[in-house]
Design a protein around this nucleic acid. Structure first.
Length: 852
RNA sequence: GCGAAGGUGGCGGAAUUGGUAGACGCACUGGAUUUAGGUUCCAGCGCGGAAACGCUUGUGGGUUCGAGUCCCACCCUUCGCACCA
């Protein structure tokens, strides 16, 4: 063995070993327990970023660990290859998105290989390949025929200059990102998937996902948002005709306190009022143009205008005004609310502002009245007051009685309202999966026949930012109707890329299947046992995948309902940010790798300057790695300088997987130092003479070794990998106390290499072979602690007096509680003095507390 | 505004789930090796104190023999959002 740790050659050699043996290709093997370990596949944006490296390192640690525990572990990789950035790059470089995408894939694949991940590349897929997206299209036609896909209008952001639809992220402060033009809202026909048909099931099944973080389940629950309430009708007259304004409320018990109704700006009543009154028209226009983001809207001042229309309270018969208000949303419920100012904070603020009546109808903890300012107690459930026949009823009784009375009048009933909306999948973009529909003047919208799939996406177009280039391509547009055969026009919208990623996990289990979307092999592998990815996908991607899995189940393609048994949401990768203000008054962000910090004698940062020119820079805290703050760290540079094992070790060691990870160059150096020490220990071990060792030292090292191993194995079950890395360091520290190649050293190094191999597979692979432990550490059994090594003759107890720790005492392992207590009292005589011992508490193997 | 997560040394983080707070590492300090820098090795390192000892897990209360961990109130930070009636 050479003395110097040459990470790159060690890693190249290990990777060649795995490659030549096909070590990571996994067949379906019913004889062994399967484990499907999946990390979210990357978008091929150009090169790997640190978040990818973290994600795949976590997945690889799990994969290699379970492999060594004898499981048949599948870890595949592919490419989420359709999407907007490819179109942007295409415009910038005048290259078709396909070429840009494939170049990126080739480069990123080489990066993944250099990191040594145990990936089964024989299953690689890319969603932009026809053999993948043909099944998107096939599945869509199934949904279309079942009525689970349908067409209706949806609202989009429209850029009037470029004449194109913009994604939310392309709208900056209400303006198009390329043109700077004021963005308009536009209604256009789109295809929707009826995810709401599964709302009930998607909600209920969350309770049967013990392997998901509570946080994510709660977010999904709130997103699906089941509300049990009452639909209430307020009658009104318009142009001599009797009509009903419907509202939905979860607080029907407060109906007697409703003093006005409010409708959204897009509501038909608002449109009617806008026609009559220019001021209302102005207000409605303002609402339509205004903020799109909920957080902004929430901060908006509550504004409204009376429509001039009055409606009738369904129970009291009172005449109450209808307002149009900016805090009512068209997209939820009926687009209209009944306002109960006394018991709803927003209604309260609105009523005070416009002098509308406030009528308390619920007894709350602060009394019967609702004086200013607003208090949270006003909204609590309580007994009805000022409510006529409903006085004295509690929440549930009042809701029941009021719902019954409304029903009798045909002006309402109990209703379940979902927050979840159907999923609009039409995108007016080129680089995506074409929606397989043909528009026929005679037959309407007709799905493409199975035998004519896929509808191929032309790959040589370069978009110019003014809409979908497919619209200008007769060869694509002109076709014949699948039903009647007459000339017809092809749909040019493509699918939301979330469609691609809603079933890829099942396709990995059926590589190359060209007769079916997924085949019988998927039944062996599904569900995914462990899914790993960023918290930013906690809602949409995971919910869509759960929806697709259910539809696939109902189509007889899968037997499972849930795609992901266990979910690990990794934290983000952060780095320090530094800036300096330029003479021109601009803020210039300086990459942390260019910054040198000065510290005081205690290690506190007191100054920072740029290495190149010595300019003073300001430390602006840590933040997510981003282009705008120029604080990204390129994984490639790291791999080239230190090797993949150092990068992997640092990522695992620096914080537990679900926490944020703070990047630190010094921390990387520390990880590199540890691997160099491990290598040096291996080299010394290689040449050391075998010897028996000193018995007491051997015994104490073996005790340390096996206690650390026991803890590490426990930590692995919790996925707390950072302390497993610590355990490896502790083991090396213990081994370095031994004089040479003693039995404890042999055993310790064998444990260390196996324990560490999922984290730093290359160096462990090399040392395992070079030091004669075996041919392939991955084939070795996972280490388990030896109970004999954990036995002790004496146990050290912590001794407290009145709960204050005062020292320790060694007690024979065989001693009973009484003996232990008296030994402790003797040892602590200095602290006990002549005071009376009232009580002793003995915690077995741990602690004695003497109460005096 | 609503929803979620979280506050432990100079820093990242540990704490066997109510039992020695600060494992492991980084940074820092001193020393050895080196022509020097780097590397490597040894020692120290929560705060105060010469020491005995005292104080210490965002703040203030509480439960307990014992609280970072459980309960109550408050303060702060981060993340998500489609004002969800």
């Amino acid at each position: 063995m050479q003395d110097r740790y040459d990470a790159l050659s060690v890693e190249r050699e290990a990777q060649e070993f795995w490659e030549s043996r096909g070590s990571f290709r996994v067949p379906e093997d019913p004889a062994r327990p399967k484990f499907y370990c999946l990390s979210m596949f990357p978008y091929p944006s150009g090169k790997l970023h640190m978040g990818h490296v973290r994600n795949y390192t976590i997945g690889d640690v799990l994969t290699r660990h379970y492999r060594m525990r004898g499981m048949n572990v599948l870890q595949p990789m592919g490419w989420d290859a359709f999407g907007l950035p490819a179109e942007n790059a295409a415009m910038a470089n005048k290259v078709p998105p396909a070429k840009w995408t494939w170049d990126n894939i080739a480069y990123m694949k080489s990066q993944l290989k250099s990191l040594g991940f145990a990936l089964d590349w024989s299953r690689e897929l890319a969603t932009c390949r026809p053999d993948y997206y043909t099944w998107n299209q096939w599945f869509f036609t199934r949904l279309f025929r079942k009525g689970l896909a349908y067409k209706k209008t949806g609202i989009v952001n429209w850029d009037p200059v470029d004449q194109t639809v913009l994604a939310n992220e392309q709208v900056i402060d209400g303006r198009g990102w390329r043109t700077g033009a004021q963005v308009e809202k536009r209604e256009i026909p789109m295809y929707f998937l009826r995810i709401t048909a599964y709302a009930d099931e998607l909600l209920a099944a969350l309770d049967e996902l013990p392997g998901w973080p509570e946080q994510v389940k709660l977010m999904q629950k709130n997103w699906i948002g089941r509300s049990d309430g009452v639909r209430v009708g307020f009658e009104y007259e318009l142009e001599g005709e009797r009509r009903v304004l419907w509202v939905f409320t979860t607080r029907a018990d407060t109906l007697m306190g409703a003093t006005f109704c409010a409708v959204a700006a897009e509501h038909p009543i608002a449109a009617w009022a806008a026609q009559r009154d220019p001021q209302i028209r102005e207000f409605v226009e303002e609402c339509r143009r205004g903020a799109v983001m909920e957080a902004d809207l929430a901060q908006l001042e509550k504004k409204g205008m009376p429509t001039g229309l009055y409606c009738t309270h369904p129970l009291s018969g009172e005449r109450i005004p209808v307002w149009v208000a900016n805090y009512v949303l068209m997209g939820y419920g009926e687009g209209a609310v009944m306002a109960v100012p006394a018991h709803d904070e927003r209604d309260y603020a609105f009523a005070l502002k416009y002098g509308l009546p406030v009528k308390p109808v619920i007894r709350h903890p602060l009394g019967d009245d609702v004086p200013e300012p607003w208090r949270a107690q006003y909204a609590e459930y309580g007994t009805c007051i000022n409510s006529g026949k409903y006085d004295g009823l509690d929440y549930q009784a009042a809701v029941d009685a009021i719902a019954a009375d409304l029903k009798a009048k045909n002006l309402g009933e109990k209703q379940v309202q979902w927050r979840l909306r159907d999923w609009g999948i039409s995108r007016q973009r080129y680089w995506g999966c074409p929606i397989p529909i043909v528009h026929c003047p005679g037959c309407g919208d007709v799905p493409v026949k199975d035998e004519d799939l896929p509808v191929l996406l032309p790959e040589d177009l370069v978009p110019d930012g003014t809409g979908n280039p497919l619209n200008k391509l007769p060869a694509f547009l002109d076709t014949r109707c699948p039903a009647c055969g007459k000339p017809a026009r092809r749909e040019t919208d493509t699918m939301d890329t979330f469609v691609d990623s809603s079933w890829y996990f099942a396709r990995f289990a059926s590589p190359g299947s060209d007769a079916a979307m997924i085949d019988a092999r998927a039944r062996y592998w599904m569900p995914v046992d462990q899914y790993i990815g960023g918290i930013e996908h906690a809602i949409l991607h995971l919910l869509y995948s759960r929806f697709f899995t259910r539809v696939m189940r109902d189509e007889g393609m899968l037997e499972v309902s849930e795609p992901f048994t266990n979910l690990l949401t990794q934290g983000m990768v952060l780095a320090e940010t530094y800036y300096r203000d330029t003479p021109q008054g601009r803020r210039e962000w300086v990459n942390p790798s260019e910054v040198e910090v000065g510290r005081d004698a205690k290690g506190k940062i007191v100054s920072a300057k740029r290495r190149t020119d010595g300019a003073q820079v300001v430390f602006a805290g840590v933040g997510t790695m981003s282009k705008s703050k120029n604080n990204g760290v390129d994984p490639q540079a790291l791999i080239e300088k230190y090797g993949a094992d150092t990068a992997r070790f640092f990522i695992i060691f620096a914080s537990p997987p679900t926490n944020t990870l703070e990047w630190s160059d010094e921390g990387v150096e520390g990880s590199y130092r540890f691997l160099k020490r491990l290598w040096a220990y291996g080299a010394k071990f290689d040449t050391a003479a075998r010897g028996a060792g000193e018995p007491a030292l051997e015994r104490s090292v073996r005790f340390e070794l096996h206690s650390v191993l026991r803890q590490a194995n426990y930590d692995l079950t919790k996925h707390q990998f950072n302390t497993v890395a610590s355990a490896a360091m502790k083991i090396l520290n213990s081994l370095e106390k031994l004089p040479g190649r003693t039995p404890a050293a042999e055993q310790g190094l064998s444990i260390l290499l196996r324990l560490l191999s999922p984290i730093t597979p290359h160096i462990c692979h090399h040392l395992w072979r070079a030091l004669g432990f075996g041919e392939d550490v991955m084939q070795a059994a996972w280490p388990e602690p030896d109970p004999a090594a954990l036995e002790q003759d004496e146990i050290e107890f912590v001794v407290q007096v009145n709960g204050k720790t005062r020292g320790t005492v060694r007690v024979p392992a065989s001693a009973d509680e009484e003996t232990t207590a008296s030994l402790a009292i003797t040892a602590m005589s200095k602290f006990v003095g002549d005071r009376q011992v009232r009580k002793t508490i003995v915690v077995p193997r741990r602690l004695v507390n003497i109460v005096v």
